[in-house]
Amino acid sequence: MKKLVFVCIFALVSILTNAQETSLEWHTDVKKAVQLSQKENKPLFLFFTGSDWCGWCIRLQKEVFFQPEFVTWAKENVILVELDFPRRKALAPEVQQTNNQLMQLFGVRGYPTVWFVKATEKEGKINFEKLGSTGYVAGGPAAWLTGANQIIKK
């Protein structure tokens, strides 16, 4: 019985440790993300998504964003920002307004769209330098990250 309890506890600790290593922080507050981007000298990764209805967005997350290779890469290279346009859940009005403004600024016409940008804040205004954009790319994390690295290494 003691061995069974020990094995169960060990398995639970392993699962929790693995979950912590594979989790990412997706920001929804753009101003805070910009500050973090400047502090860590990393570009912003703006993910325009329809989280609860867009099949390609869900597929991109499942095939790439939820994979360990992407998690490791993202932690080292970018500050993640989710700009969501859901249909079945409500966003806070200020988040919705910011998301809409950024969608217009970046000319997003479909989902998923990912923009890589460098952001600077001057006199309370945020300026974005566009590095490049992408969307769904077949081939899993390796194919997707190859394109992403080409964009951020410019």
Rank of each mutant, 00 (worst) to 15 (best):
Q35P: 08
C8T: 01
G50F: 09
W56V: 06
W53K: 09
F47P: 10
W26T: 02
L12G: 07
V7C: 02
A33D: 04
V7A: 03
K42F: 14
F45G: 02
S37N: 06
E25D: 11
S23Q: 08
T28F: 02
T28L: 00
N41H: 13
F45Y: 08
N41V: 13
T22Y: 13
F45S: 02
L36E: 14
G50Q: 10
H27L: 03
L16F: 10
G50N: 11
E21M: 13
L12V: 07
F45W: 06
K31F: 00
A11Y: 02
W56I: 06
V34F: 12
H27W: 06
S23R: 09
C57F: 10
G50L: 10
P43W: 06
V7L: 03
V13Q: 04
L12Q: 08
C8Y: 01
V7Y: 01
K39S: 09
L46A: 05
A19K: 03
E21K: 14
V5C: 07
K39V: 05
Q38M: 13
K32D: 01
L24K: 12
H27N: 07
T28P: 01
F48I: 15
L36T: 14
T17N: 11
A19S: 04
C57P: 12
F45H: 05
F45K: 03
K39Y: 10
D29N: 03
K32L: 03
W53P: 13
L46C: 06
W53I: 08
K31N: 05
E40N: 14
